Simulated scan of single mutants.
Amino acid sequence: MINPTTNVYRKQLIEGFSIPAVIRNGSYFFVDIDVYADGRVDCWNFEDLAHFKEDVRRGWVVLNIPDNEAISIHGLGSWTITNGSWLFDAESFIDYVLQLIRILNPTLENIYQYRQKVVNGIKIGESANGTVYKEQKRTANDFFPEKIGGESIHLFYKVSEEYHLVKVIIFPDLTIHLSRLEKTVYTTLEEFEELITKGIILSEVPVHAKVNIHGLGSFTVQKEQYATDIREKLLEVRDIIRELKGEPSSIEVCRTAYQQYLDNPTLENKEQLKSSYEAVPDHQKMYVGDMDTKDVAVRMIIYGEQEIENWSHYRVAKARGEKLPVINLPAPKDESDE
C-alpha cells in the first residue's frame, strides 16, 4: 500500500434550535439547551437522544421550578419565585424535542448514537459549542446565505407591567436581536442602549413582578437573591462586540496588564493594571486570574495585601484554624530610584 503524505479534515455544519429549560444541579439553573438535526442535545451533557431522555426522566433536565425555590440565571442573577406556571412535564418535553428534530431532519437520517471516545486510555468528552447566527443574503435569490455568528446574554424586556426573560444576541455589525419572544425584536446597538435608558431592557425585576419565559412558562418574583447592574451588562455587550470583531476584550486586556506587571512590577504598570481591571464588568472580574485565585492576586497588587482575606481558600483555612495560604507577588518598584 502507498502511504499518503498529506492529512486533511473536514468540518460538518449541523443545524439546530436553542430552547429554554432548567438544569437541576443542586439548585435550579436556567439554560438554553441546543437541539440538533442529528438527534444530539446539549444540556451540559452532550451525548445522544437516548441519553437526553434519561437526563429528563432522572430530573437532571427539569421543566419547572417549585414555588419558594430560586431560579439562577447565568450572568444575570437569582430570584426566589412563586406562582409558577409551566408548559411541559418530562414526557411532553421529550415529545417536543422529538418534534423539533423531525423539523430539522424529517426522515430521521443519520441519528447520532453516543460512543465513549478513548484516546491512549483517557476518556474524551465533547462540547457542543453551538453558535447562534443570523443569515445575510448577498442577493435576493441567494440560496446559500452567509451565516453571521453572534454571542448571547440574558436580560429582561419589559412590556406593559410584565417582564420577559430574553436572549440578547449580539452581532459584530452592531445589530442586536432580542429573541426568546413570540416575535424577535431587531435593534441596533444605539437603539438597544436607548431601550436601557428608557427602562425597557433591564437586568433586575421588582418583587411581585411577573416574568415570562417564552417556550417554558412564567413565575412571579418573590425575592431577589442578587442581580447584576444593567450598566455592567452594557459593558459586557460592548466587550462581546470587540471580541466578535477580533479585538481583545477587557478581560484579555487586564490579563495582559497583569502579566506585564509580574514581568516588570513598576508603579506605571501597577496603574495600568488598575485601569484595565476597573474597566472589566464587575460580574466578570473573577475571570481575570486563574481558576484558583480568581481576581484576588490582581486586587492585592492594586488595593493592598489585605485583599487576600477575600480569597475562599484563605477564609476556609482561617475558619478551620489551619495554616493560612499565601500568594506571593512582587512589590512595585519606583523606576526613579533605579
Rank of each mutant, 00 (worst) to 15 (best):
M1I: 10
T6D: 11
R10W: 08
R10C: 13
F17S: 00
I19G: 00
R24V: 05
R24T: 10
N25S: 15
V31Q: 13
I33H: 01
D34R: 14
G39C: 08
C43I: 01
L49Y: 14
A50W: 06
A50Y: 06
D55K: 07
R58N: 09
I65P: 00
I65Q: 06
E69C: 05
E69N: 10
A70V: 02
I71H: 06
S72G: 06
L76G: 11
I81Q: 02
T82C: 09
T82W: 01
T82A: 08
D95M: 04
I101T: 08
I103L: 12
L104Q: 06
L104P: 10
N105A: 03
N105R: 05
P106N: 07
T107R: 09
L108E: 10
L108S: 12
Y112F: 15
Q113A: 10
V119A: 06
I124A: 08
E126T: 14
S127W: 06
N129P: 00
Q136E: 14
D142M: 03
F144V: 12
E146H: 13
G149K: 01
E151P: 00
S152T: 06
L155Y: 04
S160R: 09
S160D: 15
Y163T: 00
F171Y: 14
L174F: 13
T175Y: 04
T175S: 14
I176G: 05
R180H: 08
E182S: 11
V185Y: 05
T188V: 05
E191W: 00
E194I: 09
I196V: 13
K198L: 14
K198Y: 09
P206W: 05
L216V: 00
E224A: 12
Y226F: 15
A227P: 07
T228R: 11
D229N: 13
D229R: 01
L234N: 15
E243W: 04
E247D: 08
S249G: 14
S250V: 02
V253D: 12
C254M: 03
T256L: 03
Q260L: 04
N264W: 01
N269F: 09
N269S: 02
Q272D: 07
L273W: 03
K274G: 08
S276T: 15
S276C: 03
M286W: 12
G289H: 02
D290M: 02
D290N: 15
T293L: 03
V298W: 04
I301T: 06
Y303H: 15
G304W: 07
Q306W: 12
E309H: 14
R315L: 12
G321H: 07
E322P: 03
V326S: 15
I327S: 09
N328A: 15
N328C: 13
A331Q: 13
A331Y: 11
P332L: 08
K333Q: 13
E335P: 04
D337Q: 14
